[in-house]
């Protein structure tokens, strides 16, 4: 089957990462958005983790196509 699942995985997690990072940036000073036990907003950090994972999957999908 000529369908590379890494592409939708990459798109999905890149989008999730972007949403969390942008949202985290705009609410970075809002204490309501803090994780109480950490005393800070971690949406940006986790958004970047998701973004890196998503871009990595897109890279794998692109490399797979070349092959």
């Amino acid at each position: 089957m000529n369908f590379d699942l890494r592409l939708p995985i990459g798109i999905l997690f890149s989008l999730f990462g972007l949403i969390l990072t942008v949202f985290g940036w705009f609410t970075r000073n809002d204490t309501e958005m803090y994780v109480k036990s950490l005393g800070k907003n971690v949406n940006i950090e986790w958004g970047i983790v998701l973004l890196v994972f998503g871009v990595f999957m897109l890279f794998l999908a692109k490399r797979g196509k070349k092959a």
Binding site: L20, G24, T27, E32, M33, Y34, K36, N41, N43, G47
Partner: peptide, 10 residues
């Protein structure tokens, strides 16, 4: 208990 808006949705 732990997750704020955003990570909660995830």
């Amino acid at each position: 208990h732990y997750l704020p808006t955003g990570m909660l949705g995830l």
